[in-house]
């Protein structure tokens, strides 16, 4: 009896440990390494006992001057997310309310095309129109991914919202758009938060688009990371400190919006 009762808690603890360790160890290694000298990073004996240094962070904000890249990433991430929300949310609502399945499938196609195959035509078009290397080209490129993402998240969300609410609002004198604006949108905060944060994180981490489409003035953080890797030498400490710098804002951002995100992801299953 007692052994059976014990089996589940033990199983639970073991599984939790395994999962948490897998997720946390690389992250912990990164954070620890960012406070080590390059020599300490490659010495297994100094895995946990080492003399901490802030030199790597001084490199990141001093010599490597990460601030402009941080600003570029923020501008591009926020602008592409906001514009995508402004366009994508009403679009998703219309598609949901009027069962526009062909349109929604069309949007999905944009998600299916491997984005790398678009880089050459994009670069060509942007270079011909003089937009290559500008914020505009990067924002548009990121929107190509974030817009379908937002449409599809919101599509599912709107379909779950009872249509009765909008109908009774119309009985009370609101136009359909008024009902969307005053009723549906207010009820969709969790969905908006989920869509917004996922779209922002995508933009923040995107490497491929920025590699080709950015210029020296609009370079983003993921590209700047590679400044620590040069031919025949790698500054591991600086690389790790820069990685922490990149990860931190997203972590903070995600923690703040977390409850909305979780609510958004489970909203459908709760209502049924």
């Amino acid at each position: 009896m007692s052994s059976k009762r014990l089996a589940y808690p033990i199983f639970r603890i073991v599984m939790l440990t395994v999962v948490v360790m897998t997720l946390v160890i690389p992250f912990a290694w990164m954070v620890l390494s960012s406070f080590k000298s390059n020599l300490a990073i490659t010495d297994p004996k100094q895995l946990l006992s080492f003399s901490p240094t802030l030199a790597n962070y001084e490199t990141v904000f001093g010599v490597a001057d990460f601030l402009p890249f941080l600003i570029n990433s923020l501008v591009i991430g926020l602008a592409s997310t906001l514009v995508s929300l402004v366009i994508g949310v009403p679009a998703a609502w219309v598609m949901a309310r009027y069962q526009m399945t062909k349109s929604s499938t069309g949007v999905l196609v944009a998600r299916i095309i491997p984005t790398i195959s678009l880089l050459i035509p994009w670069y060509y078009i942007f270079a011909q129109t003089g937009l290559a290397g500008t914020y505009t080209s990067l924002i548009l490129a990121h929107m190509f991914v974030s817009l379908p993402l937002i449409v599809w998240i919101m599509l599912g969300f709107f379909e779950q919202l009872p249509i009765d609410l909008e109908e009774s609002a119309q009985v009370d004198g609101l136009t359909p758009i008024g009902a969307f604006w005053r009723i549906t949108l207010r009820l969709s905060t969790p969905g908006l938060a989920t869509a917004g944060i996922l779209s922002f994180i995508f933009s923040w981490n995107n490497f491929m688009f920025a590699l080709i489409l950015s210029s020296a003035q609009t370079r983003t953080l993921p590209i700047a990371l590679y400044n620590f890797i040069s031919y025949a030498s790698i500054d591991w400490g600086g690389l790790m400190a820069a990685s922490v710098t990149i990860t931190l804002p997203v972590c903070v951002f995600a923690l703040i919006f977390q409850r909305y995100v979780v609510a958004g992801l489970t909203a459908g299953s709760m209502k049924g």
């Binding site: 003089g130 290559a132 500008t134 914020y135 505009t136 003035q217």
Partner: peptide
Amino acid sequence: LLPVAACSPSAPKD
């Protein structure tokens, strides 16, 4: 307007 406004700090390289 947003995308247009955002492109101001670019440097034309042609």
